[in-house]
Amino acid sequence: MVPGERVAVEPVVGEPAAVADLGGERALLVADVHAGIEVGLRYERGVELDSRATERRERLCRFVRETDADRLVVLGDLAHRIGAPEGDEREEIEELVRAITDRVPMTLVEGNHDAGVAEAFADVVDVVGPGGALLDHDGVDGDDIDGDGGVAVLHGHTWPDPELLDADVICMGHEHPQVRLEDSVGGSRVERAWLRGEVDPRAFIESRGERDADAIEDPPELVVFPAFNERSGGTWVNVEGQSFLAPFLPGALPAGDAYLLDGTRLGEYRRV
């Protein structure tokens, strides 16, 4: 990365993953893996589905290999069930974490499903708190987010640290954005999507007293990641009346564009 140049976050074509070149490190980012979702659906709803644990693990390892990544960053919700993982879910997470960390370091941004996971795997996984952090060429800048540019990461279920506004790009999960597409004969389908656009600093932070949002002349780009897990549902961002999950959306992304996983640009996400 050239000093002074804004960092780019580039999606992996056809996949719910992206790569960021941090200078000394190449990071692969995914969101909402929801490992153990089949166990959760069985427990929560009585729905029986064949486990895709092996497929999820192998896909993540393949992404790491094919993108030549130096680190995997999960933007929250590595696990599906809230609380300490146990049984088949814990076994899936253990195998997934082992498979990744045998290859590269792994960072978990704590999501609303991850409190028990973050505690259970803190000895092998770098954990970022719910407020987010700034990635740098050594991985994660931890508690000190002060910096100039770079990639900030958070999950999105809580209000972010206002200092994330110093980044070039803010990457988040939690929302599981999807678009509902209709054809000329009335048929429809739902596809996972990326949302990207300039963040509105005034809507991004909880309290105007925490920072002078109006003084930010060059706001960062906000990238809302599609869910890695295709079984986890999502927010239909182009359906009128659909509520968002993140407390700062849709206000913090007033004019973002939607993109399909294959890179197709659909235009302004609320007008698709």
Score class of each variant (00 low, 15 high):
residue 165 L to Q: 06
residue 166 D to M: 03
residue 166 D to P: 00
residue 167 A to I: 07
residue 167 A to L: 07
residue 168 D to E: 02
residue 168 D to I: 02
residue 168 D to Q: 03
residue 168 D to F: 04
residue 168 D to P: 01
residue 169 V to Q: 06
residue 169 V to F: 02
residue 170 I to M: 02
residue 171 C to R: 05
residue 173 G to Y: 06
residue 173 G to D: 09
residue 173 G to C: 08
residue 174 H to M: 01
residue 175 E to T: 10
residue 175 E to D: 10
residue 176 H to A: 04
residue 176 H to R: 09
residue 177 P to Q: 06
residue 177 P to W: 05
residue 178 Q to L: 15
residue 178 Q to D: 01
residue 178 Q to E: 12
residue 178 Q to A: 14
residue 179 V to F: 03
residue 180 R to H: 01
residue 181 L to D: 08
residue 181 L to S: 11
residue 181 L to P: 06
residue 181 L to Q: 11
residue 182 E to G: 03
residue 182 E to P: 00
residue 182 E to Y: 11
residue 182 E to W: 08
residue 183 D to I: 07
residue 184 S to G: 07
residue 185 V to Y: 10
residue 185 V to R: 13
residue 186 G to W: 08
residue 187 G to I: 03
residue 187 G to V: 04
residue 187 G to F: 11
residue 189 R to A: 07
residue 189 R to E: 11
residue 189 R to N: 00
residue 190 V to L: 03
residue 190 V to Q: 10
residue 190 V to H: 08
residue 192 R to I: 00
residue 192 R to Q: 14
residue 192 R to T: 03
residue 193 A to T: 12
residue 194 W to L: 10
residue 194 W to D: 07
residue 194 W to A: 12
residue 194 W to C: 06
residue 195 L to S: 05
residue 195 L to C: 02
residue 197 G to P: 00
residue 198 E to M: 06
residue 198 E to T: 15
residue 199 V to D: 06
residue 199 V to N: 05
residue 200 D to H: 08
residue 200 D to I: 06
residue 201 P to Q: 10
residue 202 R to W: 00
residue 202 R to E: 15
residue 203 A to G: 06
residue 203 A to F: 00
residue 203 A to S: 15
residue 203 A to M: 01
residue 203 A to N: 04
residue 204 F to M: 06
residue 204 F to R: 12
residue 204 F to G: 07
residue 205 I to Y: 03
residue 205 I to N: 05
residue 205 I to M: 04
residue 206 E to R: 15
residue 207 S to A: 05
residue 207 S to F: 04
residue 207 S to M: 00
residue 208 R to P: 15
residue 209 G to E: 14
residue 209 G to D: 13
residue 211 R to D: 00
residue 211 R to Y: 04
residue 212 D to R: 14
residue 212 D to W: 02
residue 212 D to C: 04
residue 212 D to M: 04
residue 212 D to V: 09
residue 214 D to W: 05
residue 214 D to A: 15
residue 215 A to C: 01
residue 215 A to D: 13
residue 216 I to P: 05
residue 216 I to N: 08
residue 218 D to Q: 04
residue 219 P to L: 07
residue 219 P to K: 13
residue 219 P to I: 04
residue 219 P to Q: 11
residue 220 P to M: 13
residue 220 P to I: 13
residue 221 E to P: 01
residue 223 V to F: 05
residue 223 V to L: 13
residue 225 F to R: 13
residue 229 N to Y: 02
residue 229 N to W: 05
residue 230 E to N: 12
residue 231 R to H: 12
residue 232 S to C: 11
residue 233 G to T: 02
residue 233 G to P: 00
residue 233 G to D: 01
residue 233 G to F: 00
residue 234 G to N: 10
residue 235 T to C: 11
residue 236 W to P: 10
residue 236 W to N: 12
residue 237 V to S: 11
residue 237 V to W: 13
residue 238 N to C: 11
residue 238 N to L: 12
residue 239 V to W: 15
residue 240 E to N: 11
residue 241 G to Q: 07
